[in-house]
Design a binder for these strands. Structure first.
Lengths: 218, 218
DNA sequence: GTCAAGAATATTGTATACGATTTTTTTCGT
DNA sequence: ACGAAAAAAATCGTATACAATATTCTTGAC
């Protein structure tokens, strides 16, 4: 693990080990990852640019914390970006990726029937990543990925799919509809369905966030 | 200038003092900015995340260099993002910003008549920044700004408006049309015109880049 | 018992130092 | 004179050290 300090820290944030508002103490991180403070500092700088971490001069950096408004706007932005990806993908998806989309939806159906939450989580990740890269524009792909990462500390990752509160058939049906539009080459529909999908995720999150917070004691 | 090392370096890149492919030697930068290598290293890390700088393990970082394909896709992405901003701005622009847009277009007309290149450059910057923030979504605004920065080393900044090869009335007319659509609340039109505008900028750039390269000896 | 001020502690920001790796220069053989 | 190998120089990556600032703890007055 010589080469991945910022990734290690990013993972702690995305996985929820470090939660929004938590201080990133350089020394304890240095001890935990068994390097000196310098690599930690550089990693934190990088993470601040990627938006996961908030720098405060002369004080500890903290995990980025979003207000309700900011979170709302973040999801609005994510809807537009992912919608853009879906629209492009509908027009440009490679044959290899078309096949993968079809296979993924079949797997998704089975996982959904089995009620396997963690697996559904992974499928959701791959589905969106597939559409990001399917846009066939490295910068749009990068924007979509970065946007997802910024939201991830608040988003589903780690507990939404994990809980019994969610009906797995809902995201599955939405994914299916998006996949169908993309495979049909219906760009406008793919975009609209994706925006709706992201919006729905935001509503789910609003319901579940309070529960998660009381469970963790934020 | 105690607090702005990464900004200093970013400016050198955006202004063209450092050009794509140039090495970012830590020691010489440290001497030039009169600090030790540590702050320089951290600044470079930050810039790599923002996309201006390309990190190469165990070798000097260099100013990000884009292939023709990458540049083309970058402009495509920029068109979509700025188009999105224009679309949102058409629906949400605050009264203060509406007034500023009107004032800016009047100034633009005068500057255009006078043939003042550098001034036209500044107006272009403010016009786009105004639309970015006019979208009233901090994340979309941030995405648009970052995208512009990433492209800036290749983009107009520094020599397009400066040259006699460009007809200042073309961007002026395009800006006017965009402004009109936004002020009319015509989101679809505002987006379409903005995408066309960015596309036109890309075409101009393709004509001018070879000239700039031979002038600078890349 | 509570609040404030000052001392002690902890933490960040930068400099210097040194080992590791890469790049350049030199040297030697053909 | 040209090319390859080895030595020298330069440069990056990390550790340690120390100064500057923030935070916490202690002490004392009301």
């Amino acid at each position: 693990m010589e080469k991945g300090i910022s990734k290690s820290i990013a993972e702690m944030i995305v996985r929820g080990t470090l939660r929004p508002g938590d201080r990133l103490d350089e020394q304890s991180l240095a001890e935990k990852l068994d390097v000196s403070r310098m690599p930690i500092r550089e990693a934190i700088q990088k993470l601040s640019s990627s938006g996961l971490v908030q720098l405060r001069p002369r004080r500890s950096a903290i995990v980025r914390r979003m207000s309700e408004n900011e979170l709302s706007e973040a999801f609005e932005a994510m809807g537009e970006i992912e919608g853009l990806c879906a629209s492009y993908a509908a027009q440009r998806l490679s044959e290899a990726r078309r096949l993968r989309v079809k296979a993924l939806m079949e797997i998704s159906r089975q996982v959904c029937d089995a009620g396997n939450g963690p697996e559904a989580q992974e499928i959701d990740d791959e589905f969106h990543a597939l559409i990001h890269s399917g846009a066939r524009n490295w910068m749009i792909t990068a924007l979509a990925r970065e946007t997802r990462i910024k939201v991830s500390p608040y988003s589903a990752i780690g507990f939404i799919f994990d809980s019994d509160l969610i009906d797995l058939t809902v995201p599955h049906r939405q994914h299916s509809a998006i996949a169908e539009a993309i495979l049909d080459g219906d760009a406008a529909n793919a975009r609209a369905l994706m925006i709706e999908h992201v919006g729905h995720n935001y509503l789910s999150l609003q319901e579940l966030l309070p529960l998660a917070q009381e469970r963790n004691g934020t």
